[in-house]
């Protein structure tokens, strides 16, 4: 059983007008196998939380801590965080020209495991995951994210998550821009990873739609850079019916 604890996290981002406070004291704790939905209106700081945990250089943590099984994540480099077991499925995955998906996946797997994967098993694993996510085999030879549609990019993110087998995954609006079929395929991938590896999931989303397929154990509502309300799945249902208006009115 692993645990990821975020305590009193304050984060600023550099803007032309000077540093701007985005996160104002976030507290959150998640265990292996749990799914926490983080919901909230645009600009509430959901993505900032995701990128801060992953270590994006644009975000500066001014106070607070993030610990993975007691180890301070904030002291780790970006790649150390990944090797420690954290994964961020990005909302806008980046193109990497001249680097094939297959090379990229193998390089990442080798880095995460500290040794190259046994070739035969690896090829079979990749094929199986690609099949399950309905990713055409030809994608293995395409350059990373180059010319991928929005849905293909998201499925490629989930493919990486399945193969790299992190302890905790942060899904940053993985559901946005997906049609119903793609949403179902991506959700099945998340559920498979939970079942197979006991993955803990921080599911960042603006909408409740994906929560029909990936059942959250806890729901946290983000407003103005911190958690405004917490509860079980019923909170998501309430948000579905009422929207974010009552939080915005309060803020």
């Amino acid at each position: 059983m692993s645990n990821l604890t975020i305590s009193d996290l304050h984060v600023t981002v550099e803007t032309p007008e000077g540093p701007k406070q985005i996160l104002r004291g976030v507290d959150l704790s998640i265990n292996s196998g749990e799914t926490h939905a983080i919901m909230g209106p645009n600009g509430s700081g959901k993505s900032t939380l995701a990128y801060s945990i992953a270590g994006h250089p644009k975000y500066e943590v001014t106070s607070g801590s993030v610990t993975l099984d007691g180890e301070e994540v904030l002291e780790m480099s970006v790649d150390e965080r990944a090797r420690a077991g954290l994964f961020l499925a990005m909302q806008y995955p980046v193109e990497v020209a001249g680097v094939s998906v297959s090379n990229f996946l193998r390089t990442a797997k080798t880095a995460i495991d500290g040794k190259a994967p046994a070739l035969r098993h690896w090829v079979a694993d990749v094929r199986e995951s690609m099949d399950a996510l309905r990713i055409d085999p030809s994608f293995a030879e395409r350059n990373v994210n180059e010319g991928f549609s929005g849905g293909e990019k998201k499925r490629h993110e989930i493919l990486q998550m399945e193969l790299l087998k992190p302890t905790f995954a942060i899904l940053d609006e993985t559901d946005s821009g997906l049609d119903v079929d793609a949403l179902r395929i991506v959700s099945e991938g998340v559920n498979r990873a939970k079942e197979n590896t006991g993955l803990g999931v921080l599911l960042i989303t603006h909408y409740t739609r994906i929560l029909r397929y990936v059942k959250p154990d806890f729901v946290h509502v983000f407003v103005d850079g911190k958690v405004a309300e917490e509860g079980g799945p019923e909170l998501a249902e309430r948000l579905e019916a009422e929207g974010y208006d009552r939080f915005l009115a309060k803020a």
């Binding site: 992953a54 480099s77 970006v78 790649d79 990005m90 980046v94 990442a108």
Partner: peptide
């Protein structure tokens, strides 16, 4: 491209 480097590093690949 910093975003490219971040993407690769977030997959465990050292800088």
């Amino acid at each position: 491209d910093d975003e490219q480097l971040f993407y690769l590093r977030s997959r465990g690949v050292p800088e």
